Structure formats: structure tokens, C-alpha cells
Computed example of a mutant assay.
Amino acid sequence: MLSLWVYMIYCCVGYCSTVPNLTYSSVRRHENDAATDNRDSSLGASRDLLNNENELDSRGDEWDEVRSEAKAVDDGAMSGFLNETESKKLPQAIIIGVKKGGTRALLEFLRLHPDIRAVGAEPHFFDRNYDKGLEWYRELMPKSSEDQLTMEKTPSYFVTREVPSRIYSMSKDTKLIVVMARVQDFLGLRRVVTEKYFHFNPTKGFPCLKRPEVNAKPHCLGKTKGRTHPNIDPQVVQTLRDFYKPFNRKFYKMTGHDFGWD
């Protein structure tokens, strides 16, 4: 009988010693499942945000760019991470165009500025997602403090007829940016982004961005940026200049500035 009791105690101890491992394994499995669900949900939301069938600037190999941009913004915002006064605000400035005019580069240059917070991907709210409402739009924006300017960029706004009135309905004070001007002056920003924020990449042939205050690795624009321009017949170029000349003159008069494009 004594031998039987000893054997039962031995078996019980041996079995019990495995219980924590089984529980831990079960917990880890649930955690992994939850992480997978969250990741899939996050990717689904991002795909919805970047559902731009005709926008090369925000699809395909731009995914790596968007992810690295998000990390760069997070790194720059760590000092205000615990600031309870930060909140999500509708943008006070929007880069509306033009397509392939350097809007991505401009956005990245502006995001180096400590007074700017901007969403990296193109929301396409005022042209494709307007029916989702302003609260949906606000949730896409990064958190910012009262003194920071919230921005986004979607170049197709420039060619969408309904966009101006829709933006005006949101706020008549929102500044619209078309790439061709001294944007820091237009936005009233203090001049803090200098040559120390740029690192020339000989392979790409143009400067990449860096944050000297955190000694971060330089962040370059995606593979679709900095492509070599094709050679165009001079006669074709002259034909285009003649065609656009009256429109350029009208634009010079409207802005009060001659850009010398003729």
C-alpha cells in the first residue's frame, strides 16, 4: 500500500509540473492569434487607406517607404509621447499637387520640422473617401500638440473639381500648397531645417533625409523617386511651351509672381 501511495504522489507531481508549460503555451498561442488578427486588421485598414489604383506614389514598392516614414515620425515624436495635451486634429495645411511635382519630397522635408506633424500615406479623403465623414478623416491624422501644424498630401486633389468647396466646408482657414513656392515662409514656420538634415546619396544621385538630433540613419525616398528623365525632342518641348504660355501668363498674374517658365 505504501508503495502504491508513493507511486501516486510521484505521478501527481510529475503531471503538475507540466501544467504551467501547457498554460503558458496556451496563453502564447492566444497572444499570437490576437497579434495575427491585429496585424491583419492593421494591414486591411492600411490597404483601404492606400487603395489608389492610379497612384504609383502610394502603392506597390512604396509600402516600405510608408513604413519607414511612420517610424521616422514616431522617432521624432518620442519627446511628446506622454504629453496628454496632444490630440488628433483636422489638417490646417494640405499639399494638393501637382502629381509627380515633388510632393513626396516636400512632405518629407516638412516632416523634419518639429512644428509639423503629418500623415505619410495619401488619405484621398476629399476625392475618394468623402462619404466616410470628417471623424474618419481626423482619425487618420497623427497626434499633435496645440503649437504643431497637422498636414497631409494628396496630389489628385488638384485635378478634382469638388475638392476646393469640400475643404472650404471643413475650414476656410486651411492652407493649400501647390509645389512651386517657398513653403516654410507660406506656412509661417521658423527656419530650423538646414543642411545638417540632408545626406547626399551618390547611388541615388540626390540627398536623403536624416534627423541629427537623434543621430538616425538617413531616410531616402522610394525606388520610384529620382528617376532619370527621358530625352525629349526640342521641337516637342517648344510646342508644349507655346501651348502653355497663355496659361502660364494668367497664373503669373493671379499669383503676382513670374516663374519664368517661358
Rank of each mutant, 00 (worst) to 15 (best):
M1F: 10
L4I: 11
W5C: 04
V6S: 06
I9W: 05
C12K: 04
C12G: 00
G14H: 02
Y15Q: 06
N21L: 12
L22M: 09
L22Y: 06
S25M: 13
E31P: 04
A34N: 00
A35E: 09
D37H: 05
N38T: 09
S41D: 06
S42Q: 11
G44P: 00
A45H: 07
R47S: 14
R47M: 14
N51F: 03
N51M: 05
L56V: 11
G60S: 11
E62L: 06
E62Q: 14
A72N: 09
G76K: 09
A77K: 05
S79G: 15
S79H: 14
F81H: 12
E84V: 15
E84C: 09
E86G: 02
S87T: 15
K88N: 08
L90V: 08
Q92L: 01
I96W: 01
G97T: 02
G97K: 02
R104A: 06
E108Y: 07
F109M: 13
P114I: 08
D115S: 15
I116D: 10
R117K: 12
A118N: 02
A121F: 06
A121H: 04
E122F: 08
F126H: 12
R128V: 05
N129W: 02
D131I: 05
K132I: 11
R138N: 14
S144I: 10
S145G: 14
E152A: 08
E152V: 11
Y157G: 07
Y157Q: 01
P164M: 11
I167T: 04
T174E: 00
T174W: 06
V179T: 15
A181N: 01
A181H: 07
V183I: 15
L187A: 02
L187I: 04
G188I: 11
R191V: 04
V192D: 04
V192L: 09
V192T: 14
K196D: 15
P202T: 12
P202M: 08
F206C: 01
C208F: 09
L209V: 05
E213K: 14
E213L: 03
K217G: 01
G222W: 02
K225P: 02
G226L: 07
T228C: 04
H229L: 13
P230H: 04
P230I: 05
I232W: 14
D233I: 01
D242K: 15
F247I: 00
Y252F: 13
K253C: 05
D258L: 08
